[in-house]
Structure formats: C-alpha cells, structure tokens
Computed example of a mutant assay.
Amino acid sequence: MAARSQAEETSERKRISIPKADESVLTWWEKQNDVGLSVRMLIRNEIERNGYVDVAFAPVAQLPRRGRPPGSGPDAAEAAESEAEPIQTPAAPVHLVAATPAAHPAPIPQLQPVERAPQPSTGGADLLDAIIGG
C-alpha cells in the first residue's frame, strides 16, 4: 500500500473519453506502449507550438490557399476556349532546298597489328626496371 500512496502523491490521474466513432484516435491509442507518456509528449509539442491555449475552442486562422488560383484550372481553360474566337495565323512560307549529294568520306585504312619479339623474363626487380625504363 505504501507504493500506491507514493505514486498518488507524485502524479495526478486524469480521465479521457474517446467516442467509438473516432476510429483513428482509438487505433492510435491501441498502438501506444505508454499512453500516458505519449499524451504528455503531444501536449508538450502543442505548448511549444501554440502556448497554453484551449485547443478545442481556439480561434481558427485560415491558411493561405494552395495550388492554382481560382479560375485557372482545366475547367476555366475550356470555358475560355469556347468563349474566345479562334485566331487565324498565316502559315510560315515553305522554302525548298535542293538536295546535294553527301560528301563521301575517305575510307579509313585498316591498321595492322605490330608484332613484337618476346623479351626474356629476368624476373623480379629487373623486369620492373625494364618496364619503367631504368
């Protein structure tokens, strides 16, 4: 009994009711290992963002619109096309160019492999010196 009274002295017990229709909150609740800690962390995050306010009855400030401005969507473009008269643009003049025979490049001569005489293997450092040119 001493442990129970110790816990009651160091913390306050709060009660919460979640409507059964709020499935997302109930699902979140079931995923928590320590619901008390999770709720306290959410409350602390809320305090950091908005201070000590009543979240349920706080005034709502509308965020700026996202995406295209009104009247610029595909429906507006179709409406503008149906109302506007088609613009006649003259076709660009066509110039015929006489075909000239393509210049034939000179054939590339085939290179023959160079045969080298086999060099005797002197092994180790002597071979390395021969490769380096020393």
Score class of each variant (00 low, 15 high):
residue 66 R to V: 14
residue 82 S to I: 14
residue 57 F to I: 12
residue 41 M to G: 09
residue 120 P to V: 15
residue 62 Q to S: 07
residue 39 V to Q: 00
residue 58 A to K: 10
residue 108 I to F: 11
residue 125 A to D: 10
residue 89 T to W: 09
residue 28 W to L: 13
residue 72 S to T: 15
residue 122 T to C: 14
residue 80 A to F: 12
residue 125 A to W: 11
residue 57 F to D: 10
residue 13 R to Q: 13
residue 13 R to D: 12
residue 50 N to P: 00
residue 35 V to W: 00
residue 108 I to N: 10
residue 16 I to Q: 02
residue 51 G to H: 09
residue 12 E to Q: 05
residue 130 A to V: 03
residue 64 P to D: 06
residue 80 A to R: 14
residue 80 A to S: 13
residue 82 S to F: 11
residue 34 D to R: 12
residue 51 G to L: 14
residue 128 L to M: 10
residue 56 A to E: 07
residue 22 D to W: 11
residue 55 V to L: 15
residue 10 T to A: 04
residue 117 A to E: 14
residue 4 R to W: 02
residue 85 E to S: 15
residue 9 E to Q: 08
residue 29 W to C: 06
residue 133 G to C: 02
residue 42 L to M: 14
residue 126 D to A: 15
residue 100 T to R: 07
residue 24 S to Y: 09
residue 14 K to F: 13
residue 32 Q to A: 04
residue 48 E to S: 05
residue 48 E to V: 13
residue 45 N to W: 02
residue 113 P to H: 03
residue 122 T to L: 15
residue 92 A to H: 05
residue 86 P to A: 12
residue 108 I to E: 07
residue 100 T to E: 05
residue 1 M to H: 04
residue 102 A to F: 00
residue 21 A to G: 09
residue 56 A to F: 02
residue 69 P to A: 13
residue 32 Q to I: 02
